[in-house]
Structure formats: structure tokens, C-alpha cells
């Protein structure tokens, strides 16, 4: 089996999910310069709602595709409503407050949503019912499952759709104008409140689909899944240049690849037995093909954070972003 190709396929799968979630962060940040901390939780609730619907329908005789679609159809409006309420109730009253205030509110909302989900769905993860016939295809020595193909295609379709919306429609122009300068956009007849609400709603809708994809890829949905997923997606948005829609897509895919390749190879790379100079004083441990692995694949989550920190330190504007001023 070709490990490199396999890790690239896995990286593309998770990366495209990160990219879709990252769009939610980046659109909101672009318009009101707020890190919507609760976005990850919205994604999680999307997955939970969809899983509940899918589990409820799993016993019926409907075709699997219809069941999954029903789950998504339930999750998307639920999340859109939540995104709308979040903006209306939590963030809008703070729009003119100092920068730290909405950020702290966002952290609070994230905690609240997470624990409300815990109250509703309980501590145990929800399992994805075995309704899809997950076929595995071999390409060039690696395997790709039909779920992976579906995730990648779905994400590409959503990204293309969003790009069309933002770059080709009237409302998209309004969003970009607001992102550039709220006051001037207002003078040009753009209703900033509506644009801001719309970015929250669109981001939440995309996030709901991403949550379902992520959950079905790993087979479970859990009330804590939004935190890590959200953080990674945020890292992806920063990597691509926060506020930049194409950047979020690029950053998501790249981060997925970095994570998959890093997790796949870190054990091999930090096995001191393969380092010539360490061989001497590790003689016994390395005899008979022994290993002395410093960092194994259990450090998976570190890669996203490290990427984030490195990007912020060396290129805070990200890959595609323009230079942001350093005002606090």
C-alpha cells in the first residue's frame, strides 16, 4: 500500500471539511473582524441534529441517500437559525464595544452551546447508522472510500457555489463591499446589518453540511467535536489569510494535508533509532529492529496548532491575505 498517496487522500478529505468550516470563520471575520468562536459549536450541533434525524429514519425503508439528505435538510436550517440568533442576541449589541468584548462573548457562547448540546444529546457519542454501503476503491496502491469521494465532491461544490455567490451576485458585491469598509458600503446603499446577518447564516449553513460530512467520515458525532474542528478550521482560515474566501479554501486543504502527512510520518521521522548519531547511546533499545519514537501519531492535534502559531508569527497575513494593520 502506498502510504504517501493514502495520507494525501485522507488529508484531502479532512482538509476539504476544514475548508468549508473555515469559510464560516473567514466570512464573519472579513465583515466584522470577529473571531466567531462559537462557529465550531454550530458545526457540531449541525452534525448532532443530522445524526438524530438519520438515526430516527434508519429503520424505515427509504433509500439511504434520501435518509442522509433528510438529515442534512434538517441540520442546515437549524444551524442557519442558530447562526442568525447568535449574531442577533450575542454579537450585535456589542458591535461598537472594544475588541475584546465580543471575543469574550464568543467564548462564552461556545461554552453555552457545547453544554446545551450535552444536555440534549448526552455524554455518549452518537453513532452514524450503518445505512450506507461504503465501497472502497483502489487507486495507485491506495484506497479511497465512497464517503471520502462524496465529501471531497460535496465540499468542492459548496466552495464553487459560494464563490459564485460572493463574486457574481449583487448580494455578494454587498458582502465584499462591507468587508472592505462598512461605512462607505452603507453610503452606497448596502444594508450592513443584513449583510452581517447573512454572513452568519451562510457560514452556519455551510458549517452544518461540514458537520454532517465530518461526522459521517469518522462515524460518530460528539458534543465536544466542534471545539477541535473549529480550532483547526480557524487555523486553516488564518493559514490562508483570514477574511479571504479563496484563502480559507486553500488553507483548509493545505492544513488537512499537513496534518495527515505529519501524523503519518512523524513517528518515522522522530524514531531516534533511524538517526545515525543517536544509535550509539541507544544501542540496546534499537537492537533487533527496536524503536525509540519521540513523537508518535498521537500528536495529531499538535500539527494544526503548530501551523497556526508558525503562520501567525512569520506571516500573520496568511498565504493569500493582505497585510493587516497591527492595531489592537
Amino acid at each position: 500500500m502506498d502510504i504517501l498517496l493514502q495520507q494525501i487522500i485522507n488529508g484531502l478529505t479532512t482538509g476539504s471539511v476544514y475548508a468549508v468550516v473555515a469559510l464560516g470563520y473567514t466570512m464573519v471575520y472579513g465583515v466584522i473582524q470577529l473571531i466567531n468562536f462559537a462557529h465550531g459549536e454550530v458545526v457540531m450541533i449541525g452534525a448532532m441534529v443530522a445524526f438524530s434525524v438519520i438515526t430516527a429514519l434508519a429503520g424505515s425503508n427509504l433509500p439511504p441517500l434520501v435518509i442522509v439528505l433528510a438529515g442534512v435538510m434538517a441540520a442546515v436550517p437549524a444551524c442557519m437559525l442558530m447562526g442568525f440568533l447568535l449574531e442577533r442576541v450575542a454579537y450585535r449589541p456589542l458591535r461598537h464595544a472594544p475588541r475584546l468584548a465580543p471575543l469574550i462573548t464568543a467564548i462564552g457562547m461556545s461554552i453555552i452551546l457545547q453544554h446545551l448540546a450535552l444536555l440534549v444529546w448526552g455524554r455518549n457519542p452518537l453513532a452514524f447508522p450503518q445505512i450506507i454501503d461504503n465501497r472502497v476503491f483502489g487507486i495507485g496502491g491506495a484506497a479511497i472510500s465512497s464517503v471520502q469521494i462524496a465529501i471531497i465532491l460535496m465540499s468542492l461544490a459548496m466552495m464553487a457555489g459560494l464563490s459564485w455567490f460572493v463574486y457574481r451576485t449583487r448580494f455578494g458585491i454587498a458582502i465584499r463591499a462591507t468587508a472592505e469598509n462598512v461605512h462607505v458600503a452603507g453610503l452606497m446603499g448596502v444594508n450592513a446589518d443584513r449583510v452581517i446577518a447573512a454572513t452568519f447564516i451562510i457560514g452556519a449553513g455551510l458549517g452544518a453540511v461540514a458537520g454532517v460530512m465530518y461526522g459521517s467520515y469518522y462515524g460518530i458525532a460528539h458534543y465536544t467535536m466542534g471545539f477541535n474542528l473549529g480550532l483547526k478550521a480557524f487555523s486553516a482560515a488564518v493559514l490562508g489569510g483570514i477574511g479571504n474566501i479563496a484563502g480559507a479554501m486553500l488553507g483548509g486543504i493545505l492544513l488537512g494535508l499537513v496534518e495527515a502527512l505529519g501524523t503519518g510520518y512523524v513517528g518515522e521521522l522522530t524514531d531516534l533509532c533511524t538517526w545515525p548519531m543517536a544509535h550509539g547511546w541507544l544501542g540496546e533499545r534499537c537492537a533487533d529492529g527496536g524503536h525509540f519514537v519521540l513523537f508518535g501519531s498521537n500528536y495529531q492535534d499538535v500539527f494544526a496548532f503548530l501551523t497556526l502559531i508558525l503562520v501567525l508569527v512569520f506571516r500573520p497575513s496568511g498565504l493569500l491575505g493582505e497585510r493587516v494593520s497591527e492595531r489592537a
Partner: peptide, 13 residues
């Protein structure tokens, strides 16, 4: 060098 909200995320990481 980071701005307030970026700093928050990096410290979180």
C-alpha cells in the same frame, strides 16, 4: 507582535 484576538487563539493553541 500579534493583535489581541490572534494572541488569544495562539495562547489557546
Amino acid at each position: 507582535r500579534l493583535r489581541g484576538d490572534y494572541l488569544a487563539i495562539v495562547t489557546l493553541g
